[in-house]
Design a protein around this nucleic acid. Structure first.
Lengths: 236, 236
DNA sequence: AAAATATAGTTTGTATACAAAGAAGATATC
DNA sequence: GATATCTTCTTTGTATACAAACTATATTTT
């Protein structure tokens, strides 16, 4: 009976995490305790403990007297993100290159092949989760608990930003995705070669790609240009 | 009645935080739910929620089926700390210099005068808490939620390292403390002048001081030197 | 008709009781 | 005397019930 609820608790935990990362639960969404408790066969007591833990990790926000909500995202968040990401990610990849074990490199390669597969046939959610797993493994490789605290929070919004802005509806966005994929390959090579300088540089390139992607989405070619020109530009 | 327990909950939260920072609760110490619940006039349900929150912030660690413990510290932690601290703290102070409001600068000055006061007359715990508050305010000034996640975790171990290694039993350690205090003054000036480069450089100097302090403590002048010489060296 | 108050309904938060797991000590067996 | 097993005690984890707070709707009053 203890094992059963423990399992249910884990299932709830995983479900909420995935839901937040893939935007199945959107920023600001309320978490209805009663509904989730019944759905996962738990009473509210252990459910609330899970919510507390997820709040601690940055997935949820607790408001006194008002229950839990999915952590909000604003353009301030976006700004904070791109200010911190290159630095943290650079540090993580540098340390990953220095410290990765053979076993970890193996999991990283497995994550990457899963990511590639998701590019060919998966949904946006599949791709986001595969990408998330890839980066999570680099975090483990680095193994610095202080940086990991920032990094894991970055990964949450990394996934949500990816779900929002990476929609390969035109060829340029698709190109960006395959560029991201080859970055992953390069990252693996750098880590395998213990080349920490190269790994750190790749981190920056990887985030610049993301930034460009968001620029494409948020600031598309303006409509006051002749339409033919704009279309040519986006499909280039 | 709701207000009452809310107050007790906050008191427990604050007490645990301070106890961890000042080593009143030492790394690895067990948190006895029954004892704390009775002491703070709470039942175990809200108490356990507080423990979850503190675990999320890095003060405690939860072990399944074994309750909560104060987060452990090893020399790996120390290494991780000095690897991450200069970078994170540099970034925090840079952003603080860019973004600090007049009101925040006022609180920072208040925290600094409290810190100075604790140097003259306070206990090691008072000094540690005052120092902690000073740095916490710089974190608020920076206002980047991703960096803050790493920074607040660093501050926990910063305090604990300070409690362990900063014991001004000889004049050199006392000198280090007054150097730390004047660093704080310089940091305030840099932030007030919105000089982010200066602020970032001060961060590095501040951590180098800490590192020297720990070297002094962990690697004292060896006893195989003639004793007279060693004593002269430490009291210089 | 608009505003204010009252009332029902929903949701959050806490206490208590119980069940399960773990720890420690005692007895028994080799 | 040492090891192993059984029993008791302590501690952790969960469910349920209840109380308080908040929300929304309806009724009343101006």
């Amino acid at each position: 009976m203890r094992d059963r609820t423990k399992h249910y608790k884990q299932a709830l935990y995983d479900h909420l995490k995935v839901s937040v990362l893939t935007l199945a639960l959107r920023p600001g969404d309320d978490i209805d305790e009663a509904v989730f408790a019944e759905t996962f066969g738990l009473s509210r007591t252990p459910l609330r403990e899970v919510l507390r833990e997820l709040a601690g990790e940055g997935y949820l926000e607790l408001r006194a007297g008002r229950g839990a909500r999915v952590t909000e995202m604003s353009y301030t968040t976006l700004r904070d993100f791109f200010l911190a990401a290159p630095m943290i990610y650079g540090a993580i990849l540098r340390l990953a290159a220095q410290n990765a074990t053979a076993e970890q490199i193996k999991s990283l390669k497995a994550a990457q092949s899963k990511f590639k597969k998701s590019l060919r046939s998966g949904s946006a959610a599949d791709r986001t989760l595969a990408n998330n797993q890839f980066h999570e493994i680099t975090g483990e490789m680095a193994g610095n608990i202080f940086l990991l605290a920032a990094f894991n929070r970055l990964l949450i919004d990394h996934a949500r930003i990816g779900m929002t802005f990476y929609r390969p509806q035109n060829s340029q966005m698709a190109d960006n995705l395959s560029a991201a994929s080859s970055h992953h390959d390069d990252i693996i090579s750098a880590i395998e070669a213990q080349n920490d300088d190269a790994a750190a540089q790749l981190a920056e390139a990887h985030w610049n790609l993301s930034r460009n992607q968001i620029e494409l989405f948020v600031m598309p070619s303006a409509l006051d240009i002749a339409l033919g020109t704009a279309l040519q530009q986006t499909s280039a």
